[in-house]
Design a protein around this nucleic acid. Structure first.
Lengths: 178, 178
DNA sequence: CACGTCATGTCAGTAGCTGTCATCACTACA
DNA sequence: TGTAGTGATGACAGCTACTGACATGACGTG
């Protein structure tokens, strides 16, 4: 169903695709579609929970002497690494989301959830508020900026971009702010 | 209509209130409601455009020797100042939004729009990417954290909290991250 | 072979939202 | 004063996202 949805969204656009269309191409009923996905948008955000947990675990597993921001960033790198081998898919998905405000909303909600989870992990590490929230949000911002850069770099210049490298660059730019 | 909507959302909750209910209490038709608001959620985000523009103008008007982050923060303070005298309303609105994920999505979209606008203002000031985006997003994060703190401080302790003060505290905590 | 349970199909219904046309107030201008 | 244009609203039909309820069939377990 995910594959069917991505295909259709890419062909006709998100709004022009009905839930029935996706179900039909996937060979199931519309009702069945809504039993697997809470709503039509959710079909594009299947792996978000996994990424969230991965980041959470990585933050807890980070060396104890890391600063809150560095620990949160380690979580982001771990989460982003999950997509390392699937750049083409990520690019197409990103294009679909960029073309539709309601999908952007959903993406922002997922990122906010990741920030909340990261803050929770930092608190478990003993970081107090509002430092935990600020570090988590900052790390997610770095994730956004670095990830976008990773997606936008041309592959034609045969220099295979690395997610972790892009995030590190964004992190460096963030530190330069103060 | 905005007043009618806020009342009903507070009484029965967002999902339990239909667009027809709001329209009826406001003395208009459901169709008329949707002519004024793009969707049911939008009724809670009426002033967001104004705040966005205020922040944009303030960033452009900020002293030229301010750092990107400080200029962006000046914009946030200017935007937040619009709500200075309406804390009670902001608190009630915040409670409604916190109780509904789809409203949180919309709020995140508005904040992202503010971040984009702030980044645009910074670029106009001559700030390059990705510094502009990072500074803008960081400033919005400070806005979120500081604003939440402003809303959560008890009024009973007769110490009238100041929006700008709350934002300044959050900004200080952000700087302490690095 | 009987039984539970789990995924799916079917059907009816609600609500968010949109297009279209008619109506009505208000304004401008002859 | 009359008339034409403009903008807001009401009325109505229609589509689609999503949900609840019930029936059916596959499958593993005893």
């Amino acid at each position: 169903m995910i594959r069917a949805a991505v295909e259709l969204f890419a062909e006709r656009g998100f709004e022009q695709t009905t839930a029935g269309d996706i179900a039909e191409r996937a060979g199931v009923t519309e009702r069945t579609f809504f039993r697997h996905f809470a709503d039509k948008r959710e079909v594009l955000f299947d792996g978000s929970k996994t990424m969230e947990r991965t980041a959470y675990d990585a933050i807890l597993a980070a060396p104890a002497d890391l600063s809150p921001l560095d620990a949160a960033l380690a979580g982001m790198v771990a989460g982003a690494s999950l997509l390392e081998g699937r750049r083409d898919h990520a690019v197409r998905r990103s294009g679909i989301i960029a073309a539709n405000p309601s999908l952007q909303e959903r993406e922002l909600l997922k990122l906010a959830a990741m920030a909340d989870t990261a803050a929770e992990a930092l608190r478990t590490r003993g970081v107090a508020e509002p430092t935990a929230s600020l570090a988590a949000h900052s790390a997610v911002t770095v994730f956004q900026v670095g990830f976008a850069r990773w997606l936008s770099t041309e592959v034609s210049v045969e220099e295979p971009p690395d997610v972790a490298t892009c995030l590190a660059q964004a992190a460096a730019a963030l530190r330069a702010l103060t």
